[in-house]
């Protein structure tokens, strides 16, 4: 119950914030840009529309996740709004979970609104039959955003927004590139280094699992099993990061 109360209030804060609408406005503008671009390329314009539409959802979602996420807990501490919350019969983990869930609800709204615009554009420019194909990519993009949200919340619980922003961006970049790490080392020439990189690759996030955009653009099917595995992977990572955030926040003196 407490988690939900904090989550709905966090959601309300986001949707009453002008930045949220500004980002949505630019996201919609970007959709218009994708229409113009699709008319200028050779081949199937639906490819361009899908590619840019999905990228659009992810980029603006990531911006919201990072910019709102890095101040999520920090702002409560700085502005002391947390004083009248944490002193009520709620546990600190409920606060962290509520804040994260609230931002996730905001992202659900953002992804849903942008997806609707995307579907509309696709349907009007002759790609209505491709809409269903894009759903796995949108779902996994959302899972990636939820993961970034939890990371931003984690850093926000003990660090300043600037540092949190840098760390979260670093996490995002590592997630985007870590999957290619094993390709850098020949296991036959450097078995120890290769083992170390495999371990690192196991610990670090790997967003390749969550990125099926390329397959969707070119009409390759995305099996439900792949979506399920990637979802479980993201949820596991989110849980792990939130547990760490809670462990840190639970011991924190709120000065």
């Amino acid at each position: 119950m407490n988690v939900w109360v904090i989550a709905t209030n966090t959601f309300r804060e986001a949707v009453r914030n002008k930045v949220f609408y500004t980002l949505l406005f630019f996201a919609t503008l970007f959709s218009g840009f994708s229409i113009i671009l699709s008319t200028m390329v050779l081949g199937d314009p639906a490819h361009v529309l899908i590619d840019l539409g999905l990228a659009n959802i992810e980029i603006f979602g990531t911006l919201i996740a990072i910019f709102v996420g890095i101040t999520l807990v920090y702002k409560e501490l700085q502005q002391r709004t947390i004083y009248t919350i944490i002193t009520r019969p709620i546990r600190r983990h409920q606060f962290i979970l509520g804040k994260t869930l609230g931002l996730t609800l905001t992202l659900v709204t953002e992804v849903a609104a942008m997806s609707l615009v995307f579907f509309l554009v696709l349907a009007l420019w002759g790609g209505a039959d491709r809409i269903a194909d894009t759903l796995p990519a949108i779902w996994l993009a959302f899972m990636k955003l939820a993961l970034i949200t939890s990371v931003a919340t984690f850093f926000s619980s003990f660090s300043t927004p600037i540092l949190s922003g840098m760390f979260t961006l670093g996490f995002y970049l590592i997630g985007a590139g870590s999957g290619y790490l094993p390709d850098l080392v020949d296991p036959e020439k450097s078995p120890v280094l290769a083992a170390a990189i495999r371990l690192l690759n196991f610990v670090l996030p790997d967003f390749r699992l969550l990125d099926v955009k390329g397959r969707v653009v070119y009409g390759d099917p995305v099996p439900a099993g792949d979506v399920f595995t990637a979802t479980v992977y993201a949820l596991f990572y989110i849980a792990l990061i939130l547990v760490l955030a809670i462990l840190i926040f639970d011991r924190k003196d709120i000065k």
Binding site: N9, R12, E13, R16, N17, Q79, R80, T81, Y83, T84
Partner: peptide, 10 residues
């Protein structure tokens, strides 16, 4: 609290 702060959007 001393000098209480609240969510000003509420």
């Amino acid at each position: 609290p001393e000098r209480p702060y609240f969510y000003d959007y509420l």
